[in-house]
Write a protein that binds this DNA or RNA. Structure first.
Lengths: 332, 332
DNA sequence: CGAGTCGTTTACAACGTTTAACGTGGTTGT
DNA sequence: ACAACCACGTTAAACGTTGTAAACGACTCG
């Protein structure tokens, strides 16, 4: 059924190793033999067997991307970018949904897919993995997001404190004074973004009201909607909300619409992530827009560099460029 | 570094073959030995090497899912469901973005990933692959979507004609008479859904106006927005629009909002797919809602059945249950 | 003209697993 | 007792690929 190296060799009248050499761009090969071999490969439609290859080489050219859930637009967009970035470099991405289980457990339990994958890009957000050590993993790992890498791993992340401060400052700059925050959960994301939020309030000399900081149970539209309902029920509702991601913001906007309120007229809303939905929502959503392509490309590059053997080099911490996109939900 | 079968065997004081038997659930093993072996496996943190295993067995327990793009919410949600369904059965899904290139070419060129994957779930939508034969593939394949399977492959799909007819009929039932269609491209999806659309018009005795059938260049929000702009520019704009997927519908709604028009008051809008965005958009989007979990589960089951060896059985064509979700965009 | 060199190709072993074929005691049932 | 089974072990041979090291020829040089 499947054509093997030996079939190609027979067809081309050379040894198996020579065919292998041609495939792997071994330098010393005559143009003649190379042509013969390539003709044979084409004639037989030969494709190398990745299992055998990775068994022998100890490399598979597969990397894994572990994300909380791929149906979440931000992760879907990120996954798409990372797939693309990887494909450009000839490697394949295996996407793993951690689904809120302890991702650390999953990593170790799944045993890095039985040596198949060469490394992993890991994006924890809802889960706080137990302390991982390099030894636990045994494979290169690049962290995405705010969770501190502790100098142990490479990391690629937005400066969330700064970005959150910018978002909040933007709300202040359009005259809002009573600014709520949605998503201040126990996660690293929640903690870090709240820090930026408070920093902006402080810088503007505004008090920070604990009643305006809502944790919610997650980072989905429904959580944003629920949190906004809580805010509206307050004796003194806010005049603006900074949602720690776009999904929360879209949920919050829905609640506003249901209540017959308008953004930004009644309450201004700003999000974080710049997912495509936000650009088409009514009103369109102002948001922090991280450069996802940059993020993906650098995460992949970083990981491949480690895989290539730079295991000793100091661990790098890359900061993703971002912009503040001002759209209808905060623009008069 | 990596622990092998022989390491486990040494630790447990049994032969390599016995360990292999334990792992593969070979029936005749004492509880004692099984316990010893399992203890050794746990102690050493052994994970079978999937490369070696799949090289030897010719099976990898990997399947591929080929979709146009994973950042598209419908496919992201579908991919998530399929991943879940596969994981339940102990197999892993490799997601492949075809990105509008000829997916058929990609399939053959990528050579089914060099024998790594056991089968493929293939969802063509924007691309119309050249005629594929079973022989070209050499691996089980399940088709998703409207493209006719030609009796050659298994297929899982919504009855798009019926569903489109239902959606259109719903618009008629709320009193609309000038109903446009967005997405009537040259793709199978476009053709089939237009068929249902026209069928409904005919059944209601309404004329069908070619000027109201817009092709657009794709199935994204921007295409829907552009098509709606065209419709609004018409001397006699429609009073309702059936968009062939939710993304088109969301784009169309955006154009309405920009134009100061309201759905359903001025123009009612119905979509197809029931992606989560639609449930939170303002207005919320009426849509055809296929049971994605059913779809995913059955697609995976079908594929695994083929992989298990039922290669000879007749090719099956499964019809996905759906409902019409009536929401704000068509409700008074 | 033989020794050395270089460029090109090849034989062989190895990666970790499973399957096959066979062997060996031990237990049960009649 | 004898067969029939059971629970393992042993050994060898694959699966398809690549790394190592060695062989081969042709060419250069002294």
């Amino acid at each position: 059924m499947a054509t093997r190296l030996s079939d190609v060799a027979a067809q081309a009248g050379v040894s198996v190793k020579t065919v292998s050499n041609v495939i792997n761009d071994y330098p010393h090969i005559t143009a003649r033999t190379r042509a013969k071999v390539e003709a044979a490969i084409a004639a037989l439609g030969y494709r190398p067997n990745v299992s055998a290859r990775s068994l022998r080489k100890g490399r598979s050219d597969f990397i894994a991307l572990a994300i909380p859930e791929m149906a979440s637009p931000y992760f879907a967009e990120l996954g798409a970018e990372i797939s693309r970035a990887a494909k450009r470099r000839g490697i394949t991405v295996l996407i793993d949904q951690t689904e809120g289980e302890s991702a650390a457990e999953k990593l170790v339990l799944d045993g890095m897919r039985g040596q198949l994958i060469d490394g992993i890009i890991f994006s924890p957000i809802t889960t706080v993995p137990a302390k991982l050590t390099v030894a636990d993993i045994g494979k290169p790992l690049v962290l995405l997001g705010e969770r501190p890498a502790g100098g142990q791993f490479d990391r690629v992340a937005v400066n969330s404190v700064q970005a959150s401060c910018d978002a909040t400052t933007h709300l202040i700059s359009i005259g809002r004074r009573r600014i709520a925050a949605i998503g201040v959960g126990g996660t690293s994301t929640g903690v870090v973004r709240r820090k930026g939020y408070r920093k902006a309030l402080k810088a503007a000399g505004l008090p920070h009201d604990p009643a305006l900081e809502l944790a919610g149970t997650g980072y989905h539209r429904e959580d944003g909607a629920a949190s906004m309902r809580e805010l509206l029920a307050l004796p003194e509702p806010p005049d603006a909300v900074f949602c720690f991601n776009d999904l929360l913001a879209l949920g919050a906007l829905r609640t506003l619409a249901d209540a017959g309120l308008r953004a930004p007229h009644d309450i201004a809303v700003v999000g974080f992530d710049d997912i495509e939905d936000g650009r088409y929502h009514s009103p369109t959503l102002s948001t922090i827009s991280p450069d996802k392509e940059w993020l993906a490309d650098n995460a992949v590059a970083l990981l491949l560099d480690r895989i290539a053997g730079n295991g000793e080099a100091a661990h790098r911490d890359l900061t993703v460029p971002y912009t503040l996109q001002i759209r209808e939900s905060t623009a008069g």
